[in-house]
């Protein structure tokens, strides 16, 4: 469904991705892990063409999106829902307006139906009573949940999660993970998560990919990942400073 082939990306001469090859299974949750600054978010932003590759291909349903024109890219992006690291809610709108925003802009749905759908989604993420609040009035966890509700409002085929639990306490992190698992089960989307919250995130993942040195070093189910003999994986899981991953 989503296949990345030989993806290269540099920023101002600094090579971040050096030939990434990975395939994401349809209807499953794949978590991408790796050290800070290794290019996880850069890889994620290539999947819905927020960034375009210097070299390589990204196939969504057999269409190479790296060669599409702007208008076609917008059609591809409509397949995606994205939960950004800071939720990226539009500050000038209430939570309710934020969640209903894609429906108002991209569909001709009646206002009464929009209100019902938004209320349903907010209820599902536990924000049923918070619709009138502005993003600035919400806690970090609530913002993430509102962002998740917005990401799911268009019933996307693929949902990208950029560090959904960063900055949250362990209890809240677990509740966000459970929410992702629950909604994935309910809607059946393909989930791709970038996360540092290991090993907790493994509980909701079908596959774990390790990104290091600009390439995917490992792509396995979580139980296999944890027992991997790959020294890079072992160093990362155990948080050792000595090993093949260079620590600055």
């Amino acid at each position: 469904m989503i296949r990345v082939a030989n993806l290269h990306k540099s920023f101002r001469g600094q090579k971040v991705l050096k030939g990434v090859n990975i395939e994401f299974a349809r209807g499953k949750i794949t978590t991408i892990v790796g050290t800070s600054g290794c290019g996880k978010t850069v890889l994620l932003k290539h999947l819905n063409a927020l960034l375009l590759p210097d070299k390589g291909e990204i196939f969504i349903d057999s269409v190479d999106i790296s060669k599409l024109r702007q208008k076609e890219l917008y059609q591809i992006r409509a397949k995606f829902g994205v939960l950004f690291q800071g939720a990226a809610l539009l500050d000038s709108m209430s939570v309710f307006e934020n969640v209903g925003f894609p429906l108002r802009e991209k569909t001709k749905m009646k206002e009464s139906n929009i209100k019902k759908k938004v209320a349903d989604r907010l209820e599902q993420v536990g924000l049923g009573e918070m619709g009138h609040k502005l993003p600035a009035e919400l806690s970090g966890g609530m913002r993430k949940r509102a962002g998740l509700a917005r990401a799911l409002i268009m019933d996307p085929e693929i949902v990208l999660f950029d560090e959904p639990t960063t900055g949250l306490d362990p209890v809240l992190a677990t509740s966000i993970h459970q929410l992702i698992a629950r909604t994935q089960e309910a809607f059946g989307f393909t989930g791709i998560i970038v996360s540092h919250t290991i090993p907790q995130v493994f509980e909701i993942s079908d596959y774990v990919a390790m990104l290091a040195n600009g390439v995917v070093e490992e792509l396995t189910p979580p139980e296999v990942f944890c027992s991997s003999q790959n020294p890079i994986v072992q160093q990362f899981i155990h948080g050792k400073t000595e090993g093949p991953i260079q620590v600055l």
């Binding site: 819905n48 917008y74 059609q75 992006r77 829902g81 800071g86 990226a88 809610l89 500050d91 991209k106």
Partner: peptide
């Protein structure tokens, strides 16, 4: 809006 990824969020919602 750029710094807090709100512009990226608009792109990702297929809104120009």
């Amino acid at each position: 809006m750029r710094a807090t990824e709100q512009i990226d969020a608009l792109y990702s919602m297929a809104i120009n």
